Simulated assay, not measured.
Amino acid sequence: MLWFKNAIIYQLNNDSLFNKDTIEKAIKSHLFTPCGNLDTTKMGWVSPYNDNNQSDFIVDMQGHLLLRIKKETKILPAPVIKQTLLEKIDKQEQALSRKLTKNEKASLKDEVMIDLMPRA
């Protein structure tokens, strides 16, 4: 049995723009693809039945259309980022024999985020 975590119901007027074929064509142009190495979130349409079925994206029951969208989010915990950043800052400060500027620390934080994102 399918239970919803989050369901949003819309009531639309009968219009030629909201027919099943037009909606299915629009959905097929925005299908779900999993997050890549540097992506933090991805969202796209999937089959209401399961994720493996790529043929039916709309369930039509007595004029009611059921659609399903999927969202994938990568989470990087703040303590992990902070710990890795502090280690990098210490290494840089020892190598340069001086304190790093605010801009240098910000660019190091960006590097840490890029390094950690594929492992999230």
Rank of each mutant, 00 (worst) to 15 (best):
L2G: 05
W3D: 11
F4K: 12
N6K: 14
N6V: 07
A7V: 08
I8N: 13
Y10T: 05
Y10P: 04
Q11T: 13
L12Y: 10
N13F: 04
N13H: 10
N14Y: 08
S16L: 08
T22H: 05
I23N: 00
K25P: 00
A26F: 06
S29E: 09
H30I: 06
H30R: 15
H30F: 06
F32M: 09
T33C: 09
G36P: 07
N37M: 06
L38D: 11
D39M: 07
D39V: 00
T41L: 11
M43H: 10
G44Y: 01
G44C: 03
Y49D: 12
N50F: 05
D51R: 03
N52S: 14
N52Q: 10
N53K: 12
N53M: 10
N53A: 04
Q54E: 11
Q54A: 12
S55W: 01
D56R: 02
F57W: 00
F57N: 02
V59C: 06
V59P: 04
G63R: 07
G63C: 11
H64W: 12
H64Q: 15
L66D: 09
R68P: 01
R68I: 03
I69P: 07
I69L: 14
K70P: 02
K70V: 02
K71L: 00
K71A: 00
E72T: 02
K74C: 03
I75G: 09
L76I: 13
P77C: 04
P77I: 02
A78G: 10
A78E: 15
A78H: 09
P79D: 07
I81R: 08
Q83S: 11
T84V: 13
K88D: 09
K88P: 06
I89L: 07
I89C: 03
D90W: 00
Q92I: 00
E93W: 03
L96D: 14
S97P: 01
S97C: 13
R98K: 14
R98A: 03
R98H: 03
K99G: 06
L100Q: 10
T101M: 08
K102A: 13
N103Y: 09
N103E: 15
N103S: 15
S107R: 15
L108G: 05
K109G: 01
V112D: 04
V112A: 05
I114T: 11
I114C: 04
D115I: 05
M117A: 15
P118Q: 07
P118V: 04
